[in-house]
Write a protein that binds this DNA or RNA. Sequence first.
DNA 1: AATGAATGAGCTTTCATTCAT
DNA 2: GATGAATGAAAGCTCATTCAT
Lengths: 200, 200, 200, 200
Amino acid sequence: MNEKFYDLKKEKQDKMINGAMQIFARYGYRHASTDEMVKVSGVSKGLWFHYFENKKGLYTFVTGYALKYAILELSMVVDAKETDYFKLMIQMERGKMNMMEKYPFLPLFLVSLSKERDEEAISLIQEARERYDERISEIMIKADYSKIRAKAETGKVNKMITYTLEALTQEYYESAIFRKEQYLEEADSYLQMIKSLTYR
Amino acid sequence: MNEKFYDLKKEKQDKMINGAMQIFARYGYRHASTDEMVKVSGVSKGLWFHYFENKKGLYTFVTGYALKYAILELSMVVDAKETDYFKLMIQMERGKMNMMEKYPFLPLFLVSLSKERDEEAISLIQEARERYDERISEIMIKADYSKIRAKAETGKVNKMITYTLEALTQEYYESAIFRKEQYLEEADSYLQMIKSLTYR
Amino acid sequence: MNEKFYDLKKEKQDKMINGAMQIFARYGYRHASTDEMVKVSGVSKGLWFHYFENKKGLYTFVTGYALKYAILELSMVVDAKETDYFKLMIQMERGKMNMMEKYPFLPLFLVSLSKERDEEAISLIQEARERYDERISEIMIKADYSKIRAKAETGKVNKMITYTLEALTQEYYESAIFRKEQYLEEADSYLQMIKSLTYR
Amino acid sequence: MNEKFYDLKKEKQDKMINGAMQIFARYGYRHASTDEMVKVSGVSKGLWFHYFENKKGLYTFVTGYALKYAILELSMVVDAKETDYFKLMIQMERGKMNMMEKYPFLPLFLVSLSKERDEEAISLIQEARERYDERISEIMIKADYSKIRAKAETGKVNKMITYTLEALTQEYYESAIFRKEQYLEEADSYLQMIKSLTYR
DNA sequence: AATGAATGAGCTTTCATTCAT
DNA sequence: GATGAATGAAAGCTCATTCAT
């Protein structure tokens, strides 16, 4: 990418980032079209290629940016002293809702990244994704699994929760308006249920 | 579609069905390309359009076929007297593995259908999907939830299991070889865990 | 072409000739499609190419056949002793209507030949057309122009009549049913008018 | 169509209009191919679709444009005080020759429109054609038929003249070079002949 | 002889990318 | 820096022609 992108007014940067996130999140890497980004962002086609060599470059950048920003927001919202796994999880979901203030499609974009099936796209974002996963692990390392019954393998439980919250997120984006509070309530209800099942 | 498709040698029919399933499953409706189907099936481009008016028609047909075939295989493998929810679930997964004998990409295709985001594609397959879901409900109606603790809301548990098994399926397709037995073992391990957590 | 075409039952020959005439007449050389000929004739696609190497060959044959048949019918219907130009002309139009008994699209096909704009097609039929034009000249040679006023240049008058009758023919084919008698009446009314204008 | 087409340099607009006219005029709606337009205009394939949604849209536009331009040129060249039918007709032919200055294929295109047989094409241009026909009627309304003998039905005479001039136009386009003056002379000779025949 | 399944070149249309202004 | 006109490779689809049966 062209580093001068950062010299743009923050507002314009965000317009472009949001445009890219929205279109990539909704259509995936391959079917995301430049013209749609132009339409939703109001930024001319030429400029996209001025700052980002090509679609690959744009995708790499936006992914990197999104994941870095997500880490930041999550770090901010997660209580450093919290050790309850399920409380940590819901705090993270709240963090995602906070991201929407600046980047309304970021939560959906995060989900779309984990669902991306295009090989080229996957290889482009692998690195950023690993860094993000690492950071999430660091946040979750405080989680105290001692109250969880032996039967409940934390890795598996974790996966199930992840897949479930991702699906929930996608569902909410499909409705006319995304109601954050309602989403958080539903997410919490899942988490509480699992907690009650897995805790001794 | 052109009904004469059924007059083709079953072998050729299956070559085409498999080709379509594979490409649709991997790339989704929009990005699935005729040329790729030609490549993987060895059947010329013209023939696809000889039997199926267009991409829409092909997708509609393959989806209908796949779901009907899936229902058949599932009906065959599920023990009519089985009432244990988790046993029923694992039987269904075994059924999916059986489908691979004839249609190696069918399990992945089923997952891709539930993840399809393209509006046109969704409307094309809605009907077939509803029939499939109904049939699955009929199979699962024997399931006895009485041993499940009140805390475990069956709807939510069910969703979590579905999302998890779908994700697992996709993961296995990404590895070099799909090892059915290994998949079934892992699927079972998830189901056993959830069973032990949710049963009184 | 394959001479064995003539060994086919006359009925089948005519089915094919009619099919080709109809489609060529309606859509012109380039846009006439094999599939449409198959549809209207009921004769399988393979057979067309068995008897006629390709579209070119078929067009050349059908044109030759049509023009030869037209000459025959015209010769039969035109009164050898008639010398009045306008009576000869209407006799020829009646001859064309007679052709419809066996080849319903032949009159339209004749018009389409004179309107054909495709270079390849034109060169294919040039020879047959010349022979036909010659024969028409021979028929018309008996025409007595002595009653026509000097002002009326016969060549020009002839051209105008030709173009007009061709347009009339096309119009009649566009209506739901071709009413031969009505066509002949209208054609005659044009001819009578011109006669009254050009005769001293 | 994309209104920005009008922002292009007039020269380029005309290159495209001329390219489309030429190919549509020569091959008709269906067989006119983008690639041929690219070849004769030197304008890339993509651009055609940038300005015109599809072939339909292009045809509709070019027809509308051509007919509007024709009306303009005809209005300019026709003497408002002229009442002689035949003088008006030859003035219109002169008008058509004038059109060739900017749009060399416009006279042929006008003829091709009246000969177009493709149903879709016909319905696309119907409206524009009606407006054009109306305008021609307005121009011709001044024509004084009082000197024409009762025997000469003006409707029929008119049709014959139209068909004849159209055929003449096509003939001239088929020769290596279109010689306007020669065409006008020949057109005039037809008109004078008919005048002398029909006037009392 | 007869069929129609099978093919691939060519057509219309889309879209990432380039480039003159 | 900013624009959007311009490009061409590739996608979906058609159709004359071939060929196994």
